[in-house]
């Protein structure tokens, strides 16, 4: 199967590989996996005043999964949390010209950014005080 040039570029020169401090209240961490193939993806965002100022990822998987997460970390920097929540896997797949059998890699990246945002939001909720525990 032929990878598109953009996939190869992100695969060979992945942007924003690394980790942010998971314990930092301004950092949201999303970890998702594709059980069928054993791929695993960690995507982290740092949020300041509602804006994503930094993003890092570590993906252990195929080239398309690495490219999808690399692209998302590039995209979300400078976005508001709400904007980042709107990212669709179809946009990722289109940008990277992913073939149908690799669409699930873009779904994984969408799931990862959403999981990271939810993690950040939960931390914010918990930091707001005992009200964060009210759902028990």
């Amino acid at each position: 199967m032929a990878y598109s040039n953009k996939v190869i570029d992100h695969y060979e020169h992945p942007r924003n590989v690394g980790s942010l401090d998971k314990g930092d209240a301004s950092v949201g961490t999303g970890i998702v996996g594709a059980p069928a193939c054993g791929d695993v993806m960690k995507l982290q965002i740092k949020v300041e005043n509602g804006v994503i100022t930094d993003a890092k990822f570590k993906t252990y998987g195929c080239g398309s999964a690495i490219a999808s997460s690399s692209l998302v970390t590039e995209w979300v920097k400078g976005m508001s949390v709400d904007q980042a929540m709107q990212i669709k896997n179809s946009q990722i797949a289109e940008e990277l010209s992913l073939p149908p059998v690799k669409i699930h890699c873009s779904v994984l990246a969408e799931d990862a950014i959403k999981a990271a945002i939810r993690d950040f939001q939960q931390k914010q909720g918990a930091a707001a005080g005992p009200a964060g525990d009210s759902d028990h």
């Binding site: 970890i31 996996g33 059980p35 069928a36 695993v40 252990y60």
Partner: peptide, 15 residues
């Protein structure tokens, strides 16, 4: 009917 998803703890450990 597909593969069950592993837990967050398991995925974190894989990382």
């Amino acid at each position: 009917r597909g593969a069950p998803h592993p837990t967050q703890e398991f995925l974190l450990e894989m990382i």
